[in-house]
Write a protein that binds this DNA or RNA. Structure first.
Lengths: 258, 258
DNA sequence: TTTGCATTGTTGTCCAGACAAATTGGGAGA
DNA sequence: TCTCCCAATTTGTCTGGACAACAATGCAAA
């Protein structure tokens, strides 16, 4: 006869949990970690677990809820509990409340618009915003200034899909980021945004406006705002003198729930 | 007599929710958004809500659970429900399952360690990693190569807190990112990481190793890995030739799971 | 064979009640 | 006045039951 030594999986509250649903959840986590319930397979039904532990449905459901929050199982009415992972997700997240926290400069800055025109994309910038060359876009370009309006932060060229052009007739006098105006007036929602950062020498055509020498170190931020189907709603190209800017992101370990 | 037009707050499922707890949660979200329950204040007790809606405690608690998940309230046994925010926690999230997705180059690359020494931080790099000048750190420096080991990606200098130095005696022969080794061997967990990106001319002392000219455009990535109490566990300084690298981040509208 | 339907199993929603545990506030005693 | 303790309030845990909604399965009919 062999004595089975239970080696509890690290981080799983075992039989010391004061609550019954905590212990049930711990047991199930252990069983999933051990492979007793394979990923893709099914967990016992609520009724079966009720009988096994002599617990009420409430208690069992509370335990299963914990496994859902850990990302271990998925439940569908009528179907059952499917095991979708054998270890809890430890996700590192960088969450932001608003889109403007993505582009760090949106708050407390002023966009001095100097030009609004329909343009045909050159071979050079079309790939930057992932649009077909020679397609037409509304370009809104200018200089972003600090709140006191005495210092230039960057040169910005926003390219907006032509279907939004009628909404932006008065863009020069408006406040706030352009994507917000489009979201508000069109009712369309930005589903995804990407940002690409590259270091390049400052181009000659915008160096004077920023008061730096052409060829000096610079960072180019390209932000693309996409709709639900992945189409580009607008994209902005931003040139920052290097000595005035750095880009910081923070992520935190999330043991949480979404 | 004025007709009060109820303008539902965007994104809140209103009276069309088929479930009772969903409608209760919607009402409460609306009231919080409107400021009827101020941040820092208290929500009505479960008993009060039960009476107001003629619902059972189960139903009311289910509604309150939704507000907890949204990060709007906080509950403590015996105390009550405190309002801690007036809008849901995150609209846009950039989530990653692992830390290595943060530094995009960790996968499929090889870290060719060329030097491991205890160093005293200079006045120049101490502020880069937010450490006191002249403090002692273990510096592990070298070149990160692509998977085929025929092309240099960047120059990396990892500064590790001295308390981990004994764990890294054999670091030269080990695989995987250094923070992972430290997490595994020390048991300490990285709670937060920050990354700072700046554009600067390539320094002369690492230009030759990367095969580029000193002063050419470059990006400097500084990553800091912090423990629970905010102390720096390790920090890395990475110099990338600009023409070989760009940094991309994507965020999604996140109403739910990552 | 394929389509449609009914049956059965499973989870979702909801109720009423009970006791436990934590917090809070006020009153009695030092 | 200050401290300690008790009692009321409030949320946490748990039971038992009921019906609804959805999914899967097998059977019957086309």
């Amino acid at each position: 006869m062999t004595i089975q030594t239970k080696t509890p999986v690290a981080g799983i509250a075992g039989s010391d949990d004061p609550t019954l649903y905590g212990r049930i959840a711990g047991d199930l986590r252990q069983e999933i970690a051990e492979g007793k319930h394979a990923v893709g397979g099914r967990l016992p039904t609520e009724a079966a677990l009720c009988e096994r532990y002599g617990a009420s449905r409430y208690t069992v459901r509370e335990a299963l809820r914990e496994l859902i929050d850990l990302g271990l199982i998925e439940r569908r009415q009528g179907a059952g509990s499917k095991v979708i992972a054998d270890k809890p997700r430890t996700s590192y997240i960088n969450s932001m409340r608003t889109l403007s926290e993505f582009s760090q400069y949106a708050q407390d800055t002023f966009f001095d618009i100097r030009d609004v025109t329909m343009v045909r994309l050159s071979e050079e910038i079309a790939p930057m915003i992932s649009a077909p060359p020679r397609s037409m876009w509304l370009r809104i370009s200018g200089i972003r200034l600090n709140a006191e309006r005495n210092d230039a932060i960057c040169h910005t060229a926003v390219h907006v899909h032509t279907r939004f052009a009628p909404l932006l007739e008065d863009v020069k006098g408006s406040k706030g980021p352009i994507y917000a105006i489009i979201e508000e007036r069109s009712g369309e929602v930005i589903a995804e945004a990407t940002q690409e950062i590259t270091a390049k020498p400052m181009p000659a055509w915008c160096a004077p406006e920023l008061g730096v020498k052409p060829g000096s170190p610079a960072m180019c931020f390209v932000r693309r705002y996409l709709d639900e189907s992945g189409g580009i709603m607008l994209a902005s190209i931003n040139w920052h003198p290097a000595e005035r800017s750095s880009y910081v992101t923070t992520i935190r370990r999330g043991d949480w729930h979404p």
